[in-house]
């Protein structure tokens, strides 16, 4: 085979990669051995290729893989991997979760104590819970009603003892400096007349108040009909 320097240059990589045919594979080294330029070229290129195959790959920057994972899957992936078996603790330490747990626990303590305090033992039967709760509501309502009634009595006594006689005799809540007319306007309704009449006499008014106090301090159910009407009318 007629081999020249151009052939060597063109087929150099085929020779190095072992891709030459059998006749070419014989002619290539034969020519190169007798040609100084080709010998140098083959030595340089084969040396370069051999060294390139030996060069270890460049180390990638630290954190490159983690950055890519975080950019594609999100940062949660790395957190779960680094937290390990104690990763669930971070969930519990969230303020919202802890507050919820404390609230629920406190609610149970209050319910159990209320049930135990009333029935003497803890009954978790729903019917029992309902009865206890129903009884508690009614007792609370009765107590508050009695408290309001007692307050009304106390305020009534207080106002009777501290107010001047003029204001006591005035039925209207707003005090008026105008003198009362000597004669009330004529009225055809006997009830109006009967309401206005006691206010005109101070002594009569005081006596009625005493009766009323006596009534309020006793049981209201036992009060006579007329006194009850009178007391209701005088109360604010």
């Amino acid at each position: 085979m007629n081999w020249n320097c151009t052939n060597t240059v063109e087929r150099l990589s085929d020779y190095l990669d072992g891709a030459l045919g059998s006749a070419e594979a014989l002619a290539f080294p034969e020519h190169a051995a007798g040609c100084a330029n080709c010998t140098q070229l083959v030595a340089q290129v084969s040396g370069l290729v051999a060294r390139m195959h030996q060069i270890p790959p460049v180390q990638e920057p630290a954190g490159l893989v983690e950055t890519i994972i975080a950019a594609t899957l999100g940062p949660r992936k790395r957190q779960s991997a680094s937290a390990g078996s104690l990763g669930w603790l971070s969930t519990i330490w969230q303020p919202r979760f802890a507050m919820g747990v404390v609230t629920v626990a406190a609610s149970f303590v209050i319910i159990f104590q209320a049930v135990a305090g009333i029935s003497g033992k803890v009954e978790l039967n729903p019917a029992n819970l309902f009865h206890v709760a129903n009884r508690q509501v009614h007792l609370t309502y009765a107590r508050s009603t009695k408290f309001v009634n007692d307050l009304r009595v106390v305020y009534e006594i207080q106002s009777r003892l501290t107010s001047p006689p003029e204001s006591m005799s005035e039925p209207s809540p707003a005090p008026s400096s105008e003198p009362q007319p000597k004669d009330p306007p004529p009225s055809s309704d006997p009830r109006e007349k009967s309401q206005a009449t006691p206010h005109r006499d101070h002594h009569e008014s005081c006596a009625a108040a005493n009766v009323e106090l006596a009534f309020l301090l006793t049981d209201s159910a036992a009060a006579p009909e007329n006194l009850s009407d009178f007391a209701l009318r005088r109360l604010p």
């Binding site: 030595a43 340089q44 370069l48």
Partner: peptide, 21 residues
């Protein structure tokens, strides 16, 4: 391209003073 690239790279490195192995 591979062949020309190898030959060209070898020439460049030779000019840079890099000796082949």
């Amino acid at each position: 391209r591979i062949n020309r690239g190898r030959i060209e790279l070898a020439r460049i490195l030779n000019e840079m003073g890099v000796r082949p192995a």
